[in-house]
Simulated assay, not measured.
Amino acid sequence: MRRKIILFISVLLYAVSPLYADVPAIMKDVKKELDGNNVTFEIIPAQAQVVIDGKQKYSVENGVLELNLPEGEHEYKISALGYLSFEGKLTSVPNESVKIKITLNKEWRGAIDLAAFPDDVEITYGRHKYGAMLELDGLPAGEHSFSFTKKGYRTVDTTFVVKSGVRNFYSVILSPIESYSKRKEKKTNRWNMLLLSQAGYNTDVSLGLMVGMMRKNGFYLKALTSLNAPKADYKCTETGMIQEGDLQHYPYYKTKTLYSQYAVSAGYLRMLGKPVGIYVGAGYGSHTVVWETIEGTKVENEDLLKSGAVAECGIILRLKKFALSCGVQSIDFSYTEIQFGLGVIF
């Protein structure tokens, strides 16, 4: 019995012994994979900084940096004082070493001298403010933005180019705000032409045109006429009686009434503010009422005829290059219609 037990234990130990023999090799491989792969940077200049994947920073003192990076793709950035930075990508492969040789380009620098006029101009560069005379050394080559300000003068924001190894000279002259206002005033004082299409309504629709010349003050001409202009064969009184020599008679009329009118006027324009103006004018006009008999004869009613002096007034609303108008016009102070206009100012 004892021999059987000893034999069983011997066979069992012999069966499991290969498993224990492979354990150190597996651990060694795993450790090697976790430690990563060897990456070597050779950099000129000798003192630089290397950033891996935007997180890990390493300082280089003798121009050589050796790292163990995990397998896969990595981003790196190399920078040094007085040199342009360099960015790139590398791929770490198992059991292979990666060597990267980089020579950084120098960051060329220059100087700039600025002079601003008149005196006491404030120069702003970045977050710093300086006087009217400014000297800056050691600026990177390229474009640099400056702002020049002084109370009572127009601010100047501009960009100057700094060339490497050169002292660059620039000057700026600020313009007084008063001169700008005078130019603006001169521009606003020039004559503008007003062109408005007109439409009026009371008993009938009239159409016309209004033309004017204006600055702050101006003048205009306007003409309107009705769409219908019936020609009468006879004339009658307000009661409809037609007088033919010594004969008087009352024909039968249709219920339809025809109208005819025209008005010509001229007047004064005045801009009260930037968007609003007014106009007043006078002229001559006529408004005719025509009845039609059942036979088709047209008869002008003399008692309802309105003709004589025209008086009008209204407002003009200016919207940049466009204009709107609204007003009233009276013929002989007995026939009045409301009028609207739409047009342009140029």
Rank of each mutant, 00 (worst) to 15 (best):
S10G: 15
V11G: 14
A21V: 06
D22H: 13
A25V: 05
A25F: 03
M27D: 12
E33A: 08
I43E: 09
P45E: 03
A46R: 12
Q49Y: 03
V50C: 02
V50S: 02
Y58R: 08
V60Y: 04
N62Q: 13
G63L: 01
G63W: 07
G72N: 08
K77S: 11
A80F: 01
L81W: 07
F86G: 02
K89A: 03
T91F: 09
S92P: 00
E96Y: 04
E96L: 07
E96A: 10
S97A: 15
K99C: 03
L104W: 00
L104I: 00
K106Y: 03
G110M: 00
A111P: 00
A115F: 13
A116H: 01
P118G: 10
G126W: 11
R127L: 11
R127N: 13
K129P: 05
E135T: 10
F146D: 04
F148Y: 00
T158A: 01
V162G: 01
V162H: 01
S164L: 01
G165V: 02
V166F: 14
R167A: 08
N168T: 10
Y170G: 03
I173F: 10
P176I: 04
I177V: 13
E178R: 07
S181W: 10
R183W: 06
W191N: 15
M193F: 14
M193S: 08
L196A: 04
S197M: 06
G200D: 11
V211F: 12
G212R: 02
K216D: 13
F219R: 08
Y220I: 04
L224W: 05
S226Q: 06
P230F: 00
K231D: 15
C236N: 05
C236W: 05
G245S: 00
Y252W: 06
Y253A: 01
K256L: 12
T257A: 02
Y262S: 12
S265Q: 04
Y268L: 06
L272D: 11
K274I: 06
V276T: 13
A282I: 10
G283E: 09
Y284W: 12
Y284N: 07
G296F: 03
G296N: 10
N301C: 09
D303R: 03
A309P: 05
V310M: 04
L317W: 07
R318Y: 15
A323H: 02
S325R: 05
C326V: 09
S330W: 03
E337D: 14
F340D: 06
G341S: 01
G343M: 02
G343N: 02
